[in-house]
């Protein structure tokens, strides 16, 4: 396991003075990812907040080659680059780096194609559960009950399970992690780097302006999401599903998930579930969904 002290010493390839909001989870997710991958990485970034974080040309806040591409094409442009890298005999990591809109929704077809073909691409979704760059609209990754600018009274459907969609493709590696655990991000990206074929990592990325919480709570909420079972830490590798971290402790019966309210209450995107009138119907449904989802994962997992 990588230690905090190791991580602190590693070179930063995401550069300071970038255009991200204060407390932006991309900073943590991308810094850590690039520490694991190193300079021999080429990024493919569709329309998402990372397009903006780079800042205005002819400079950019990133130290690896990067191709900004159309919303639905992170996987397909990366497929072509992976083919080219093979022809050139280049030892590089082809990294598709996309938000949840570009992954769960508009980019899904290209991801499925690349995954089915087994193209040599590491696809990482930093998942803030909405279209944040366009101003916080609902996406397929938005959870039930969440306010967005296209669901003013709360989303009426649960989030899509992208990890399971990738697991159904039987790709070599699928993992879910959270900005709350930079060491877990590092380990998973490192492991994915060493594998060939299509690999997928979903990083939960709590977004201060989108989730409506103070900017110092980014990491804390990334952890609470895991401790309440709202998000799971897992890896699917060589056909087997395994849990990590707090999720693993719960699976082993050593801990319990905290009530999801502890996570929801800290975000104003869920405030209408608590005031002016408490919405027990939705709160109970979210809690039920967490239980059912975890049981589904448990039924597939090796503990």
């Amino acid at each position: 396991m990588v230690t905090v002290k190791d991580l602190a010493k590693m070179e930063d390839l995401l550069l300071k003075g970038n255009a991200a909001c204060a407390g932006c989870p991309i900073g943590v997710a991308l810094r850590t990812t690039l520490k694991a991958l190193g300079r021999k990485t080429i990024m493919f970034v569709p329309a998402c907040c990372t397009s903006v974080v780079q800042g205005i040309g002819p400079g950019a806040a990133i130290s690896v080659p990067l191709f900004n591409t159309a919303f639905e094409t992170a996987a397909s442009v990366a497929s072509g680059a992976a083919a080219a890298a093979e022809i050139l005999g280049k030892d590089v990591t082809i990294l598709a780096w996309a938000g949840d809109g570009g992954t769960y929704d508009i980019g899904l077809q290209a991801i499925s194609g690349a995954a089915e073909r087994g193209d040599n691409v590491l696809y990482i979704c930093y998942n803030n559960q909405m279209y944040s760059n366009t101003g916080i609209q609902r996406s397929g990754a938005t959870p039930l009950g969440a306010w967005t600018t296209t669901t003013w009274t709360g989303k009426t459907e649960h989030m899509k399970d992208m990890g399971m969609i990738l697991i159904a493709h039987r790709v070599p590696y699928v993992a879910a992690t959270s900005v709350g655990y930079p060491d877990d991000i590092y380990e998973k990206v490192k492991k994915a780097k060493e594998k060939k074929g299509f690999r997928y990592i979903d990083i939960l990325a709590p977004c201060p302006p989108g989730w409506r919480f103070p900017s110092d709570m980014t990491i804390r909420l990334g952890r609470l999401a895991i401790e309440t079972g709202f998000w799971l830490l897992y890896e699917y590798e060589d056909g087997e599903l395994r849990f990590n971290g707090y999720t693993k402790l719960v699976a082993e019966g050593k801990r319990e998930f905290k009530p999801v309210e502890e996570f929801l209450r800290l975000q104003d995107r869920f405030r209408h579930l608590f005031e002016p009138k408490r919405r027990d119907d939705i709160l109970e449904e979210i809690q039920r969904w967490i239980k059912e989802r975890f049981e589904w994962y448990l039924s597939l997992a090796k503990i």
Binding site: V77, S79, G80, A84, E86, A110, D119
Partner: peptide
């Protein structure tokens, strides 16, 4: 001596050769 990507749509076909061309490979 070439690599063929049998993509799942024309949108991806153009996207893929944009990716390979950007790597410096004739596509």
């Amino acid at each position: 001596d070439a690599k063929m990507i049998r993509v799942e749509s024309e949108h991806s076909a153009m996207a893929a050769i944009i990716g390979s061309e950007a790597m410096g490979v004739r596509s």
